[in-house]
Computed example of a mutant assay.
Amino acid sequence: MSGGYVLYGAPGSGSVTVEAALTLIGAPWRLEDAASWKDVTDSAEMARVNPMRQVPALVLPSGELMTESAAILTWLADSHPAAGLAPGLESPMRPRFLRWMAFISAQIYALYWVRDVPGRLAEGAANEALIKDRTLARIADCYRVMDAQVKPAGRFLLGDELSALDLYLAVVSRWGPRRKGFYAAAPGLAAAVRAVDSEPRLAALWAARFPFNEGWEG
């Protein structure tokens, strides 16, 4: 592998999960940063890199572009097995890892494209408010489904080792309904995301990219 990774991201966005994974992996990488996810949607440069105008977007050392956070995290974990961020192909935990990575991506993360700018799909303040209320309820319901079916077998979701799945859930669960809403819907998963929050290897990253400011839990 020649050179390093180039990651396009923004503070507090889904790119922070990839930044966390790259930090734990220890591979060389460089951040092309936007001020916020809102700036990304209006950026001609981002449209050139990723026509969907979304982050994260990761350029591999080969020059290949990857988008979609679940795909990026899974590929990074599989490409750097020494970091221990995903169960191996022969592990009995592999199906569980893939299932919930895809679940977070498809059932929860995807709703924020609607929720963040409801005017994309609705016209008028009343309709936009309805979309925000119903997407919030749907997200909470998805967390309840996870809580009922994912029974952490250790300190983290898949055992005693931190995985990309833990990183993914820890970041996404900080968005609406924010952590207090997440804890209420998924109390059985609370300890795992708190363990990610307190991971010493990520302390500097959280402080710089998604700080635990007063009232951050909601």
Rank of each mutant, 00 (worst) to 15 (best):
P92E: 12
L136Q: 05
R115S: 01
L89Y: 00
L89P: 09
G84I: 03
A140W: 00
W75T: 07
P81H: 14
L98N: 14
P87L: 12
E123I: 11
A129F: 03
A148T: 02
E123K: 15
T74F: 03
V114T: 05
W75S: 03
H80N: 15
L85K: 12
A125T: 07
L98M: 14
R120K: 14
M93N: 06
P152W: 02
F103C: 07
A83V: 04
P92C: 07
Y112V: 03
D147Q: 12
A106Q: 07
L89F: 04
R144W: 03
P81C: 08
E123R: 15
W113D: 02
M101L: 13
E128N: 10
W113P: 01
L121M: 10
A122N: 03
R155L: 07
A102P: 00
G84D: 05
H80D: 03
F103A: 08
A83Y: 12
P87R: 14
I139Q: 01
S105C: 06
L98T: 09
F156P: 07
W75E: 04
A137V: 05
G124A: 08
T135K: 01
L130W: 13
I104D: 09
S91L: 11
L136M: 04
P95D: 07
L157N: 10
G119Y: 08
R99S: 11
S91N: 10
L98I: 06
F103H: 14
L111V: 00
P95Q: 10
M146S: 11
N127S: 15
V145S: 10
F97V: 07
A140P: 00
M146K: 11
R144T: 08
I104A: 11
I104S: 05
Y112A: 01
A126Y: 02
V150F: 02
G154H: 11
V145N: 03
E128R: 15
V117D: 12
A70M: 04
K132H: 03
E123H: 14
W100H: 04
L85V: 05
P95F: 02
L73E: 09
K151P: 00
L85F: 09
F97E: 11
Y109S: 05
P118T: 06
D133V: 03
A106C: 15
I131A: 03
S105H: 15
R99F: 05
A153R: 14
A126S: 12
V150W: 04
D147I: 04
F97N: 13
G84S: 07
R96A: 13
C142S: 13
R120P: 00
L157P: 07
L111K: 08
L76P: 10
N127G: 04
W100D: 10
R99C: 00
C142P: 00
M146A: 13
S79P: 02
R115P: 00
A110R: 06
L111P: 00
H80W: 13
H80M: 05
I108G: 01
I139K: 01
A83L: 06
P95W: 06
L85N: 11
A86R: 13
W113T: 11
A102T: 13
L85P: 06
D147C: 12
P118W: 05
A71L: 12
M101A: 09
L111C: 05
D147N: 15
Y143C: 08
E128M: 15
I131F: 01
A125C: 02
A71R: 08
P95A: 06
Q149L: 13
P152R: 10
I139A: 01
D141E: 14
P118G: 09
G88H: 06
A86F: 06
R120S: 04
D78G: 04
E128I: 03
A86T: 05
L121N: 02
A102R: 14
L76Q: 11
